[in-house]
Design a protein around this nucleic acid. Structure first.
Lengths: 143, 143
DNA sequence: TTTAGTGCAAAAGTTTTGCATGGTC
DNA sequence: GACCATGCAAAACTTTTGCACTAAA
């Protein structure tokens, strides 16, 4: 993680009104540097491997905070395991490669009108939805 | 769970080529009788409350088997917790009430063409998708 | 009799919590 | 000094596994 990423992470935290402690900067910075997603355990291992003596509980607490502030997305590919990713703003879904776990954001979500209509048929008012798309990316198909 | 439900559960198991043991009949019968969904723990508690001395591990093993055979659906509302439900055949999604957990099947899924198109833009080949819709049902809105 | 299923207990794995310590305003 | 964040260890919780025992084909 470069100094630039650390500075950007600190900025993001500051703008969100979250105190930019060194641990939070490290965790968010790591997610900013990562193209795909990471579990709390993976994040912890990476930072430990760099000589950081941070606790696993801190990683969990930090990720929960970042997710609550909307600074990162929590994605669940498999039950019993939450992954975190620094994503763009706004409503979107994820396209994930089953092989290499590469994540792509899909921002062109056209589901709302359909969902509202279908929900109303069953007497429901739709309040939200979660879509996860699995696929195989170009690199993995070539290999 | 009535004798009729038990008979139906045994039929369903037999048709799927799964040996209809008494435990499997009980677990599937319970899911057939339930309108919404149940966790393994809830299922275990219900059957224990009836005086059945079945193990929690058996419930997990049975549910995994039923899900693999396509006899029940595994739904994940919250990460870290799998729910099971006896659903209709074919591809569908779930509309779940955030208040009472009532589940409705949505069978009119029109996502495939859109997903294939959007995936291709990113070099992916879409292989599957999971959509969970949250909402509030009529009963809960009235209350 | 041979195989598959089950109960119980222990283990595994992830996530949360309690509490003392340390850092920050 | 007051408050928030952190490390560490223990606990909580869901799910899986090992193994002896039982039931079924």
């Amino acid at each position: 993680m470069s100094a630039q990423q650390r500075a950007r992470a600190a900025d993001v935290l500051g703008e969100a009104g979250v105190r930019p402690t060194s641990r939070r900067v490290q965790v968010l910075g790591e997610l900013i540097a990562e193209r795909d997603d990471l579990t709390a355990q993976e994040l912890h291992e990476r930072l430990r491997a760099r000589g950081e003596r941070l606790g696993l509980a801190t990683v969990y607490r930090t990720l929960a905070l970042l997710a609550e502030e909307g600074l990162v997305d929590a994605i669940s590919h498999r039950p019993g395991e939450l992954c975190y990713r620094r994503c763009g703003e706004g409503h979107h879904h994820h396209l994930v490669c089953s092989d290499c776990h590469r994540v792509v954001e899909l921002s062109e979500c056209e589901l709302e009108p359909w969902l509202e209509r279908v929900s109303a048929v069953h007497g429901f008012v739709a309040t939200g939805h979660r879509l996860e798309v699995a696929g195989v990316c170009g690199d993995c198909r070539a290999a």
